[in-house]
Design a protein around this nucleic acid. Structure first.
Length: 614
RNA sequence: GCCAUCUUAGCUCAGGGGUAGAGCACUUCCAUGGUAAGGAAGGGGUCUCGGGUUCAAAUCCCGAAGAUGGCUCCA
């Protein structure tokens, strides 16, 4: 297994070199950055001066690459003293390589930030002095590189250049922007085809496309970018999801609270958000007092005010607040996308205020709630323990962090959750457990989050009276199960391809008549009334279109159940519902009375199951 | 915010210096139909917006807005 990974790594990295060789051949003035391996492929950062690459250049580059591959040039490794390497970079007009080499010479690493030198295929990553570096040569192309590579260019499998985009040199937005050419590479055509098919599938499920087709949400130029408006159908999804998330926590003693959407900025200065995120806050001005307010980007500081509004005793804790509410963040335009990143973000946000010894149980409750939610929506979960790194981007004493991080890990281990640990992913006020959910086509998305926070209680001077009469500081536990309703919906639409289970389906039952015969229509109207009386969401199609067309329309709308009403149904008073293709049908379905059918759908809705018991 | 590409009817898209086209959707009429499109007719567009070039701009040029793919960021 490891060998296979190493092999595909070497192949992809070799492809990056071949891409660079080809570009160099076509545009000899090309200056190169780095060319690492990424998921399914590779990229190479290239500075071509004023020449702008586009997809239209791919055939030429690919043709050149194929020549190099056909030539089966050996990858030859060469080790040279670093000063010689620097001279090479100057002579061959490769300023980016020169910068890397100088860094390497100075500090023993090329790593500016989180870039992993191993991933970049660069030497370094260690500490101290480096006096030799390695080069790889294929044909007449030479590149600074730590390898490994395949033995020769004929051994790279199949590839395809996929896209070109801008990328900052060394990931720094203050530095020059280069052109990044992306490609994918696989051992054989079959695997490449499989990958391309997955990309097609992802496109077909794109929540922006389905949101449009299924009439779930819209964007309006007059409202603004990053500000989705939800239609009646989309709002059903939002409300049902929020209801579920709230129910899960109410069972553990959470109480609903409500807080206003604007506030004085003092609140956020106190919490630390203003300093950290000031530029991403929307400002609101009072026309009378000229006071400047902010749109809330977060709810925790507000909830601390409710906590602090009364003296609290150790007997009162834990106190658990829950609010599903919309926050506003002035995200940069280029960062917006569909529902994944919006400026009006609705969080199913909760905060526990508890004593230190209560942390374990509270965490367990929240982890259980998260597991139940993701089991219900049929997504596999694993968690990332998001720790701080050594930078100064965090508030509070390091010992506190250490203890908090350990407690999170304990809770995760005790709950037998699959986890991995990552530094530098924490919030500025505390470490997090970030839940990653895998969707139906294997992509992982960050969804729920549970965060331990000793910092805000301190900054807001929260306290309670301990059993001995002394004042003690509570701990805060932040939690959002869906994360952001908008982002969750985006993920979930793609996970299900819009085929929502009955409990979420905006339209659960479509009643279609064979013709506009009065007896058929009366039956349909009567049944629809019954369904509405039971709280079901039902759609009627009693027009003069053909039944074939009505069925097709219900299928395209992905309605779970379609009921066809004609002479047969009116006479027998029984029906055979048409069940959407993705449902698992548990038994042979026979004609049932409409009453019985509707009751089954009610049961499925209440138990939030995604199979049909018909 | 940065780089690139894109923006034509409600939707999906074709066209292209001489003032617009298809399919679906919509409306009306005919057909009263049995589980993924019955037939016909009709309505619908300042070609995203603002400037410029031109006898003439939806088409070419510049700018803005919005979208998409990345980069950067993500409480």
């Amino acid at each position: 297994m490891t060998d296979k990974i190493d092999q595909s790594h070497a192949m992809r990295h070799s492809l990056a070199h071949i891409t660079a060789s080809a570009v160099k051949k076509l545009w000899p003035e090309a200056k190169f950055g780095v060319g690492p391996v990424v998921e399914s492929g590779f990229y190479y950062d290239i500075d071509l001066g004023s020449k702008k690459l586009s997809d239209e250049d791919f055939p030429a580059i690919e043709a050149e690459m194929k020549k190099i591959i056909a030539g089966n040039q050996a990858f030859e490794r060469d080790e040279v003293p670093i000063d010689e390497a620097i001279k090479w970079s100057q002579d061959s007009m490769q300023p980016y390589k020169e910068e890397l080499l100088n860094d390497l010479k100075r500090s023993g690493t090329t790593v500016a930030k989180e870039l992993d030198p191993e991933q970049l295929g660069l030497p370094g990553g260690g500490n101290g002095q480096v006096d030799k570096v390695s080069f790889y040569k294929n044909g007449d192309f030479i590149d600074l590189c730590r390898g490994p590579h395949v033995a020769s260019t004929g051994q790279v499998g199949v590839f395809k250049l996929t896209k070109v985009s801008g990328a900052y040199w060394r990931g720094d937005e203050k530095k020059a922007q280069m052109q990044r050419v992306y490609g994918v590479g696989f051992a054989n055509q079959e695997e490449l085809d499989k990958y391309l098919k997955m990309i097609e599938e992802a496109k077909a499920r794109d929540h922006r496309k389905l949101g449009q087709e299924m009439d779930l949400f819209i964007f309006s130029d007059m409202v603004g970018s990053g500000l989705p408006l939800f239609t009646p159908r989309g709002t059903v999804l939002r409300d049902e999801l929020a209801k579920f998330s709230n129910e899960l926590r109410r069972a553990y003693g959470f109480e609903m609270v409500w807080t206003p959407h604007i506030t004085k900025k003092d609140l956020y200065e106190k919490s630390g958000h203003w300093e950290k995120f000031g530029e991403e806050l929307f400002l609101v001005k009072s026309q009378e007092t000229k006071d400047e307010l902010v749109m809330k980007p977060m709810n925790c500081p507000h909830h601390t005010r409710i906590y602090a509004s009364q003296p609290r005793s150790y007997r009162d804790l834990p106190i658990r607040y829950l609010e599903t509410t919309t926050d506003y963040r002035d995200e940069k335009t280029g960062e917006l996308g569909g529902l994944s990143r919006v400026r009006a973000i609705t969080q199913d946000d909760s905060h526990v205020f508890c004593r230190e010894e209560q942390i374990g149980e509270e965490m367990n409750n929240l982890l259980a709630a998260a597991r139940e939610l993701y089991a219900t929506v049929n997504m596999k979960l694993r968690v990332r323990l998001s720790y701080r790194d050594e930078s100064d981007a965090y508030l509070g004493a390091k010992e506190l962090w250490q203890s908090a991080q350990e407690q999170l890990k304990q809770a995760v281990v005790a709950n037998e959750l699959e986890y991995f640990e990552e530094e530098g992913e924490a919030a500025f006020y505390g470490p997090k457990i970030d839940f990653m959910a895998t969707d139906a086509i294997g992509r992982e998305h960050q969804v729920a989050t549970v965060q331990l926070d000793f910092i805000q209680p301190e900054r807001f001077a929260l306290e309670y009276t301990a059993s001995d009469g002394s004042k003690a500081q509570p701990v805060m536990i932040h939690c959002a199960l869906l994360g952001s309703i908008e982002r969750f919906l985006g993920v979930y639409i793609e996970h299900t391809a819009g085929k929502f289970p009955p409990w979420l389906a905006p339209e659960q039952i479509r009643i279609a008549t064979i013709a506009d015969d009065k007896s058929f229509v009366d039956f349909a109207l009567d049944m629809a009334e019954q369904a509405k009386g039971l709280g079901l969401r039902v759609g009627l199609d009693v027009g003069r279109d053909s039944i074939g067309k009505k069925i097709r329309s219900a299928e395209l709308d992905k309605v779970p159940y379609t009921v066809v009403i004609g002479k047969k149904e009116v006479e027998s008073q029984k029906l055979v519902p048409r069940i959407r293709a993705d449902f698992e049908v548990q038994k042979e379905h026979q004609p049932v009375g409409s009453q019985q059918f509707l009751q089954t759908v009610v049961n499925e809705t209440e138990s939030r199951i995604s199979k049909t018991s018909l």
